[in-house]
Design a protein around this nucleic acid. Structure first.
Lengths: 165, 165
DNA sequence: TTCGATGCAAATAGTTTGCATTCTA
DNA sequence: TAGAATGCAAACTATTTGCATCGAA
């Protein structure tokens, strides 16, 4: 019987050990890719366009579908490959905010970290000061540097607490 | 474009709204099932035996495989069905401690809640006092009642912090 | 002109569902 | 003996991989 499967994730999802690459614009992101010796292709541009076009984390499938505002559909396997590569570089990150596909977003300075309600599914992001306080206590209690960006901080939101008595 | 998929999970994984049913022994668990109007079958006994036989959360597949100490193999689909039912009743819970299958465990009084390192994958459980402090701060900061049993509290453990500088 | 990236197809992992059969209550 | 639960097969979702072709540098 194998032990429980909480295996170390590849650098893809783990904390960025090399200085993270962030970008404010698509062109800056593409430049960052070139700087890493990676090529700029139409498919990569499209993935970045989708990510820059939304403020919410989106799934690989949503990216592959394209949208009516001019972002063309693309191949799902390539989308996954490109998301992985972008995550390796540090431009993108993903989170698991519930059951369902992983959700991807641009990695920005002060990346949002999530608080999700397990009853109603509502997701909100933690403010910098909330985060700072939580991280401090987690560190004090356990020595860990907490991160709520890949796995959210989960619990019962105030409304659902009220409902469940 | 659908919104992000952080949908409310079914009662299965959400916090138990009706008083949770816990059991110290397999027979007590089976009695609890009968008390809920559910039937006791060989397949259900086997799922419970596997769960009672380990202290670590295990996957549905591990249960279905059986083991050399007399727990017979069983049908994976039935294992999933029974785990879901046991979770509905409150006897069992599951967690996502990394990429990979969900891991199931008996729901006990003061159920373990998890702290996982995203770099090395190590999982440890939080002590009652650690939990109490964390929950209090989370509640103060956000109003949420935190739970680290379904999604673990994730971060960088002290050793990996040292390594990554 | 080379090798990295693409797009299609097929494989894989985890989980769920349909349905005829079996067995508990 | 009614209907709940099983076991097998097939479907499904999320993701990965193989490979011939294409295109950026």
């Amino acid at each position: 019987m194998r032990g429980p499967r909480a295996e170390a994730e590849p650098s893809v999802t783990g904390p960025q050990l090399s200085p993270p690459v962030h970008a404010e614009t698509i062109d800056a992101a593409l430049d960052a890719l070139r700087a890493c010796g990676l090529r700029v292709s139409a498919a990569r541009r499209v993935v970045l366009e989708s990510l820059f076009a939304t403020t919410e984390p989106i799934s690989a499938e949503m990216i592959a579908e394209g949208n009516s505002e001019g972002i063309p559909r693309s191949d799902l396997a390539s989308v996954y490959r490109n998301l992985e590569m972008l995550e390796d570089v540090g431009l993108v990150r993903h989170a698991h905010l519930g059951h369902g596909p992983g959700l991807y977003a641009l990695a920005r300075e002060g990346e949002p970290e999530f608080l999700v309600c397990e009853a109603c599914g509502k997701v909100r992001s933690l403010s910098t000061s909330e985060l700072a306080r939580l991280r401090k206590v987690v560190h004090g209690v356990s020595g860990y540097r907490a991160r709520f960006s890949h796995f959210p901080l989960a619990g019962l939101c105030p409304e659902c607490q009220a409902e469940s008595g």
